[in-house]
Design a binder for these strands. Sequence first.
DNA 1: GTCCAGGAAAAGG
DNA 2: CCTTTTCATGGA
Length: 304
Amino acid sequence: MPLQDTHALTFSLTVPPDFRFAPCLDYMARSDNESLFEVRDGGVNRLLLLSGEPVLLRITAEEEQTLTVRVLAGAWKGEAARVEAERYIRDWFDLDRDLEPFYRLAMGHGVLGGLAREFNGLRLVGVPDLFEALCWAIVGQQVNLAFAYTLKRRLTETYGDSLEWEGRIYRHFPRPGQLAAAEPEALGALQLTRMKSAAVLDVARRMSGGALSREGLLALGSFRAAEEQLLQIRGVGPWTSQYVRMRCLRDPEAYPVGDVGLHNAVRLLLGLDRKPTLPELQALFADWPGWEAYAAFYLWRALY
DNA sequence: GTCCAGGAAAAGG
DNA sequence: CCTTTTCATGGA
């Protein structure tokens, strides 16, 4: 592989005034079994596919109102790669959203006010890649997070691209085409259940065939229409579709209302001795019109 | 061994 | 159409 002279290549992104990188890193460092990026020394390293080539980037916040991106390794395709990287990172950290209205709503709110102060500057860290987002949600169904991370790691290590740099291996989540031809038994060997295997393979085939894509979902014109298309997939139910709306499609009103973790967070923060009921949840989220996704993300954050 | 986990499909009414 | 049961697997 021709390793171009990328070691000196650096560029920067402007960030909104209410952005802070530290709480985003804290969130991303919540699992020591994360396989798709590495939070280390005040920054995050991640392998991205830019113009089809694996490129290892490091993101830090060294100056005010700025994220610094260093190209550490890989085949750098110049301006096209920079545009792609910038688009990915702005999406990943939701850099084009003004959180001021959210914080104004949270201020004075008993539960969320405290969280808004504790995690001030935290962005809804997204999963820009639709295949990764769908697979992450599918493997995360009804299993504890620790096991979900293990399943994601196995999929990534078995089917994804990788690049070694300074003695460490950085990995990219498989592309749909890399999984589409896999046998269900092969995924079963990674400890995915039959339903998870079938769902992941169905998504891989739809996406590699072009029948399903993030752009296609967004082009439908409404998040509700996108959700209906997602629900056609066997193994994708309400929780998964809402999760993908929230973290990949970035529907600001989406949140997984049936989520066990969300229920636990609300129970904890409201001091309930039981899970909140659906009407209680709906009443709670009615306080944040247009900011339901952020409210849920901050509530979720309180647990970890 | 038990209970649970960032659910979904199938069965039952 | 709404409610209950089954499936499935590792972590604590």
